[in-house]
């Protein structure tokens, strides 16, 4: 056996509801999940002693021991595969992929093994693994460190994909994902991890919304913005700016990326008649294409304009000086809203 915990885990619920960033909320969520279930393990590169390069696992190895927070060699296939083996033997591993692009060396194990074991075993085998992936740009890094690979996985049946955009969701969605019996890829907006202005009060005694449900964040009448992850903030800012000019925009946070929960989007489009899908990912064969296809199928007679998209470019993710040009921002979103309104 590996080393026992150095000391008893701290209780997270003994103090008043704290104000947390997304990064801290994720850390609290991991702590709560580990306290709730001794089968929850954390594994990944530098997650133990260092606490992760983004410090999301900070302090957890110290409190829960090396047998529950495992530093791994640099080997993403090995990490995912090991997690699968642990899961079929009753554990609930939470794997940290250090940066979005580093998931590609583990892609085969996720797509060829993790996604298919339940189906292949007549439903006898459950593989309750969470793969945490810090994703998206905006931190001045380059390709492999700023990517949005979600569409590569949403194309694979058997995986669930979710993305949080705020501290309260970060806290609850991660715990719900860990309790889910299906494999969940958990996409975290890394550029917002430590943004102090986004701090929220996270009440561990509150009742969370369901994990696999999208949510209307702001009601509006002129057009709908549907988005997820780091682009939620951009869309909310756009809606605030549009409101100052008298345009009322509805904003929907998808939260669950696969399977999609599009009923609230259909309902919104039937009201506004216009939809703009916003994502940092390249546009071709992406989640935004899927949304456009399904909305035209379900809401054809309600649409006053084609579904428009604001996305990253169909290029490799660019270095720093081109990043602002690449990423959807307030101006691009508002410009596209204008196009939809004047179609």
């Amino acid at each position: 056996m590996m080393a026992a915990p150095a000391k008893a885990p701290e209780r997270s619920a003994t103090t008043a509801a704290p104000q947390l960033t997304i990064g801290k909320a994720l850390n609290h969520a991991l702590r709560a999940a580990m306290e709730a279930d001794p089968k929850v393990l954390i594994m990944g590169e530098d997650v133990g002693k260092l606490g992760g390069v983004f410090r999301i696992t900070d302090g957890l190895q110290k409190d829960f021991g090396e047998h529950r927070v495992l530093d791994t060699p640099l080997a993403e296939s090995g990490i995912i595969g090991t997690a699968i083996g642990l899961a079929v033997r009753g554990f609930r591993p939470v794997c940290e992929i250090q940066f979005d692009g580093f998931v590609f060396p583990g892609f085969d194990q996720i797509v060829s093994q993790l996604a298919k074991l339940h189906f292949r075993s007549q439903g006898k085998v459950k593989v309750p693994i969470v793969v945490r992936i810090p994703f998206g740009g905006g931190i001045g890094a380059v390709e492999h460190h700023s990517e949005s690979p979600e569409s590569l996985f949403s194309h694979t049946a058997g995986l669930r994909l979710v993305s949080c955009s705020n501290p309260v969701d970060a806290y609850w969605m991660l715990q719900q994902a860990i309790r889910c019996d299906d494999p969940v890829l958990f996409f975290e907006p890394k550029k917002l991890y430590h943004t102090g202005s986004l701090k929220e009060t996270v009440d561990p005694t509150a009742s969370p919304d369901p994990l696999f449900a999208s949510r209307v964040l702001r009601s509006g009448t002129a057009a709908t913005l549907v988005t997820y992850g780091p682009s939620v903030r951009v869309c909310l800012d756009a809606a605030i700016a549009a409101a100052e000019e008298g345009t009322s925009l509805e904003v929907i946070d998808l939260r669950t990326l696969s399977p999609l929960d599009l009923e609230p989007v259909f309902e919104s489009v039937r009201k506004t008649g216009r939809l703009i899908a916003v994502s940092e990912a390249p546009s071709e064969s992406s989640l935004t294409s899927e949304i456009a296809a399904r909305v035209q199928q379900e809401c054809f007679y309600s649409l006053e304009a084609p579904v428009l998209r604001v996305t990253g470019f169909d290029t490799p993710y660019p270095p720093t000086k081109l990043e602002e040009y690449y990423l959807p921002d307030l101006d691009r979103v508002l410009h596209t809203v204008d196009r939809a309104l004047t179609w």
């Binding site: 995912i80 090991t82 194990q109």
Partner: peptide, 8 residues
């Protein structure tokens, strides 16, 4: 890799 998991 799966065997590393069951062995662990």
């Amino acid at each position: 890799p799966l065997i590393c998991g069951t062995a662990l």
